[in-house]
Design a protein around this nucleic acid. Structure first.
Lengths: 199, 199, 199, 199
DNA sequence: ACCACCGGGACAACCCGTTCCT
DNA sequence: AGGAACGGGTTGTCCCGGTGGT
C-alpha cells in the first residue's frame, strides 16, 4: 500500500525535525525518532539508509522552501530602495515562521563544518541570497537611485543584517520586535547609500 | 607539584578546544581529548567533573576574552561616528583571531538551545554587546552627531552586522575580505544615521 | 521468530544465575554474562533494561519455585506433627536443589538491605513461610496434638531452623548431612511441643 | 605523631564498616570511605595496602568480638538445660547489639563464597560455636539431664536457631520480639530433649 | 613517618546505529 | 515492515601507585 508507506515516511521526517531541533542531531537517537513517529526501527531503515540521510533529506526540504520564499519576493517594481523596503516589510513573516525551525538551522551549520556535502548544500543558498541582494544593489546603482558603493559588499551587509537579527531572535525570541528591528536596519542602510540623502 | 597539575589542565583545555572546534562537542570523545592532550582519563576526571564542564570552562574563557577586546576599544575619543569607525577598523583582528574558534561558537549556540545554563551564559554577553553599541548611539544622538534614531534598534542592527558577517566568514572564509566588508557596512550604517551626511 | 527470542532470554538468565552464584552480583559484568550466554550486549539490553532487572527476574523465578514446593506439601492429612515430620523428610530435596543456588540467596539478602524493592520481594515470602508454619502449629494446638504454645513464635522458630541449617550447609556443604540434621531438629522441636511426648 | 596516625586509621575503619554495612563492599568506593573518614586517599593507602585489606581487618575485629562474647557466657553452673536457658536469656543483648552490624555480617558471608581466606575466617567461628553448643549437649547427656540425642546435630540445630532468627531479625527488625522468640525456641528444644519431659 | 595531590589505565554499565531474518 | 540481535563505543568511576611536601 503506497499511501501508508508515504505516511510513515512523513511521520518519520516530522518526528526527526522535531527532535533534531529540540535536542540536536547527535543527541537524538534513531530509537527516539521511531518512537516519536510511532513506527518500528525496521520501518525506519526501510525508508532511509541511515540517520544521516534523514538529516540530508530535511536539509534539502528546507533549502527548497528557502528558495521558494526567495523568488516569491522578486516581483515588486519601482525604484530599488522601495523594493528593498517592501521586502523588509515582508520579512516579519520569516521571523515568525522560522521560529521553531531555526534550531534546526543551527544544527545544519554545525554539521556543515564537518561534512563537505552538508557544507556545499548549506553554503549554496547563502551565495544565492547574497547574489540576490547584490543584484538589487547593482540595479539601484545603474538606475541611479543608489550611490556607487561596492554592490558585493552591500549584498553581504544586507545578508549579515538578516542573519544576525535572525540569530539574535533565536537566542532571545522575546527580547525585542525583531522584524521591526529588521525594517529599521534596512532603512538605515538605505539612508546611507541612497543617492538623495534623506530627501 | 602544582605546576604540573596546571599544565595538564591547560593541555586538556587546549586539546578540547581543538577537537570541539574541528569535530563538534558530541563527536569528540573524552578518550580522544585525553589522547590529544597526552594524559590519561584519570587525569581528565581529576581536573574536570565531566565533559560538559570542560565545555563550560571553554565558554567562560572565550567570553572573558571577548569582553576584554570589547572594552579595550572604549577609550577612544572624538565624535561617536569616528569612534565607531575606529572600532570597525580594529575588528579585522577579531575576524582573524576568531577564525579557528568560530566552529566552537556554533557549538555554543547549538548547546544554548538545550541547556539553560549555557543559554544564560551565552545570552548575557550578547546583551552586553548590544547595550554597548546602544550606548554609543545614544551618545551620538545626544551630542548631535547622529540623527535621532531608535538607539536600541541601532545597537541590535550593529550587532547583527557583526554576527552576520562573522557567520558568513565562517561558512566561506575565503569568499571575501570580511573585515573590509565589516568596515564598509559600518560606514553605510553611519552614513545613514549621521546628522551631517559625509560633510 | 518468537522462539529464538525466548531462547536467548533463557540463555541470558541461565548464564546470569550461574555467574551471580559463583562470583556475586557486583563482580559479574554484563559482558561476562553475555559471553557466557553466547549473545551480544545488544541482545542483553534488548531483553532487559538493566543488569539489576535480570537480578529481579531471577529473584522472582526463585521465589515462585519455592512457593510451589511449599504448597505442594500442603496436601497431607493425619495429625499435624506427622504432617510436619513428613515435610521435613521432603526437605532433603530442597537442600540438594538449593545447593548451587544458595550463593545467590545470600546475594538477595545482601541486596535486600539496600534496595527497598528487593527487600519487599524478599521479605514477602518469608512472611508467607512463617505464616504457613504458624498455621500448622495452630491447627495442631486446636486439634489437641500440640501443647498450647505461642504458634507465632513456633512458626518463627521452625523457619529459623530451616534458614539456619540452609546457611550452615552453604558455608560448609560437606560438613554434615544437613537434611538429616533438619529432620532431627524438627523431631526435637515436635517432641518439645507435642501433647503426648513420643507416645 | 603516633596518636594522630592511630586516629586516622580508626576513622578509616569506622567509615568503612559504616559504608560496607550500608551499601556493601563493592558498592563502597575508596574515595567514599576517605570522604566519610575525612582523610585523603593518600592517607588511606598509607594505612592499608588495599580496600580488601580493610575488609579483612574488619572481619578480624568482628571475629574477636564474637569470641569474647562466646566465652563470657561460659561461666554458669547447675544443670545443662538451665545453663542453656540462661544463655538464651542473655541473647537479647546480642540481637540489639548486632543490629547495625548484621549487614556487615551478610557481606562477610557473601564474600566467603569467593575468597578462600575469608571463607576460612568466617567458617571458623561457626565451627567453634557449634562445638560450643555440642559440648553443652554432651555434658547434658552424660550428666543425665538430657536424652541421648545426637549431640552434634543438636548443636547444629541450636546454632541454626540462633542464625535463623538473627537473619529474620535483620530482614524485619520490628516484625517481632526476636530475643523472646529465641528464648521460646530454646525452651521448646530443651523440652524436646530433656530427660524428664515437662516435669 | 605521614599525608595530599596527581595521574594511570582498566573496565563498568549502558546505548547506539545498523543489519538480518521473517 | 517488524523485531531480534550485533558489536563497537560512550561517559564516567575505580583502585591504586608515584612524587613531593610537612
Amino acid at each position: 500500500m503506497q499511501q501508508r508507506s508515504e505516511e510513515t515516511r512523513t511521520h518519520l521526517l516530522e518526528a526527526a525535525v522535531r527532535l533534531f531541533g529540540r535536542q540536536g542531531y547527535e543527541a537524538s537517537s534513531v530509537a527516539e525518532i521511531c518512537a516519536a513517529a510511532g513506527v518500528s526501527k525496521g520501518a525506519f531503515y526501510h525508508h532511509f539508509p541511515s540517520k544521516h540521510e534523514v538529516f540530508m533529506q530535511l536539509l534539502e526540504n528546507w533549502l527548497k522552501v528557502l528558495d521558494i520564499q526567495l523568488f516569491a519576493s522578486r516581483a515588486s517594481q519601482r525604484t530599488t530602495p522601495e523594493a528593498l523596503r517592501e521586502m523588509a516589510g515582508m520579512a516579519s513573516g520569516i521571523f515568525e515562521v522560522a521560529g521553531g525551525r531555526l534550531h534546526m538551522f543551527l544544527e545544519f551549520w554545525s554539521q556543515a563544518n564537518r561534512d563537505p556535502v552538508v557544507w556545499e548544500a548549506t553554503i549554496a543558498p547563502f551565495r544565492r541570497y547574497q547574489a540576490f541582494f547584490t543584484s538589487f544593489f547593482e540595479n539601484g546603482i545603474t538606475e541611479g537611485s543608489l550611490k556607487p558603493v561596492d554592490a558585493q559588499n552591500a549584498g553581504r551587509v544586507a545578508l549579515a543584517l538578516a542573519i544576525g537579527l535572525l540569530l539574535q531572535s533565536l537566542l532571545d525570541p522575546k527580547g525585542a520586535d525583531w522584524s521591526a528591528s529588521f525594517k529599521d536596519g534596512i532603512d538605515m542602510l538605505l539612508d546611507g547609500i541612497s543617492a538623495d540623502p534623506q530627501k
